[in-house]
């Protein structure tokens, strides 16, 4: 027990770094997924193509590779490369945000498909503008439809922060590994596992609460 307590400061420090990445990635990618989702459904073809290509690239390649390319690869582009040199943590935020925007955009797109078309007609006959229709009626319903899928991604995102390991940022797994190597003892990784479980327990509770908060009278 004393051994576990002795490693906690280092592990918790790693946890804070993981949570920081998690928070930045979440706060940026959740709203930014929406304009991309709208682009995926745009009537203007080139916009649709760009959005589709973007989503295709970021969904079909491993996040770890994207992270490595953004950190190590971008600065090697001739000419503009030197301006693209980011520190490890910012490179990670960029990779995570770009990657998760692609996933959230697809989730939102499916949510928009799930909103009944007749809602648009109701808005039209009530004289609501396009903007009012979208923001007051369509998006809230889309958001509700998407919530379980978004929750799924949020939990995955927390675990994906361990990919920071690939660019040697001192997050939770990185620090746990350091302790394992130092002491030739696996306990630190077990403790890290428990920390992930505890964090995701709280996340799950919050997300479930959100779901029932937006149940609109339906028993789910």
């Amino acid at each position: 027990m004393d051994y576990i307590i002795s490693m906690l400061p280092m592990l918790l420090k790693g946890t804070v770094t993981s949570l920081k990445l998690f928070a930045f990635a979440l706060v940026l990618s959740i709203p930014l997924g929406l304009p991309v989702a709208l682009q995926l459904r745009s009537r203007f073809r080139p916009l649709r193509w760009i959005a589709n290509i973007y989503v295709y690239i970021f969904r079909s390649t491993p996040l770890m590779l994207q992270l490595v390319i953004i950190y190590f690869g971008l600065p090697r582009i001739p000419g503009i490369g030197p301006y693209l040199l980011l520190d490890r943590f910012h490179a990670a935020i960029l990779a995570f945000v770009l990657n998760y925007i692609a996933y959230f955009a697809e989730i939102y797109r499916s949510g928009l498909l799930g909103v009944n078309r007749s809602q648009f007609e109701a808005c039209q006959v009530l004289g609501l503008s396009h903007w009012q229709t979208q923001t007051r009626v369509i998006f809230p319903q889309m958001f509700r439809i998407c919530l379980p899928s978004v929750a799924n991604e949020v939990i995955t995102l927390l675990k994906d922060t361990s990919l920071l390991y690939a660019v040697s940022v001192a997050e939770l797994i990185h620090n746990a590994e350091a302790i394992v190597n130092r002491d030739a003892n696996m306990t630190a990784l077990m403790v890290a596992l428990v920390i992930y479980m505890i964090l995701n327990f709280f996340l799950t509770v919050i997300l479930k609460h959100l779901e029932s908060r937006f149940s609109w009278g339906k028993n789910l």
Binding site: S118, V125, V137, Q141, W216
Partner: peptide, 11 residues
């Protein structure tokens, strides 16, 4: 206008 499926805003 009143629709067959009511079209109230469920949210």
């Amino acid at each position: 206008m009143v629709f067959q499926a009511y079209n109230l805003f469920p949210n």
